[in-house]
């Protein structure tokens, strides 16, 4: 059972749950005020959106919500956690992933299909992915700032760097590889109707945990 965590202002929780279903799994929702993840949780998704209206810093307030204590314990026990877009920002603000997401250097909301190079296919979540995947990106604050030399980079933008992130980083993992965050949206690339099914293996890996 995959727990999709909702905060006030989460937007992409339904898409995340549908992607889990498309990968053959089951999903349930957890609420930010919950002290524990739902019983039987085998994986966690922090979905995209604008939790708390991006007030203070994107992901900052959500990262201090009660449920994040449970997510932290789950991750420290080796559980698989996937943060997408705002969920990635939340994981960085929580200190579960390195770096921070800043305003795009374009100063604009960027919404387009991008190609990602899978820089590290050895994590629990990225293992089944093709070397290059096509997924959409849609955000205003996706400009990852961090130290690639000390970070387990798992995704880089292929070709141009649309958001201006350090070293064209699109997604990173923790050292252990069980926590992964990325700005683009693999959950919107799980059905041929949406133009790509390249994101599906990520959810299959999450479900298989």
């Amino acid at each position: 059972m995959i727990a999709v965590v909702r905060f006030p202002g989460s937007l992409d929780h339904d898409s995340a749950a549908k992607a889990v279903h498309a990968a053959g799994g089951t999903a349930t929702f957890a609420w930010q005020d919950d002290a524990e993840l739902p019983a039987g949780t085998t994986g966690v998704i922090l979905p995209g959106g604008f939790s708390y209206g991006d007030h203070l810093r994107p992901g900052a307030i959500a990262s201090r919500a009660p449920i994040m204590g449970a997510v932290r314990r789950f991750a420290e026990a080796g559980g698989r956690v996937l943060g997408i877009c705002n969920g990635f920002q939340v994981l960085c603000e929580a200190g579960l992933l390195p770096g921070v997401l800043r305003t795009n250097t374009t100063l604009s909301f960027v919404c387009r299909q991008v190609h990602l190079d899978v820089a590290d296919g050895d994590t629990a979540l990225t293992r089944g992915l093709a070397p290059t995947i096509s997924v959409p990106v849609k955000n205003q604050d996706g400009n990852w700032l961090g130290d690639p030399a000390t970070t387990r980079v798992v995704f880089r933008y292929h070709g141009e760097n649309p958001l201006g992130s350090t070293d064209a980083v699109a997604g990173v993992a923790n050292a252990r590889g069980n926590v992964v965050g990325l700005m683009p949206h693999p959950e919107e690339a799980v059905d041929a109707l949406l133009g790509s099914t390249d994101g599906l293996p990520l959810f299959r890996a999450l479900v298989a945990a």
Partner: peptide, 9 residues
């Protein structure tokens, strides 16, 4: 330290 500023940036 707890919330108002992110020391990375």
């Amino acid at each position: 330290e707890a919330l108002l500023a992110n020391p990375l940036i």
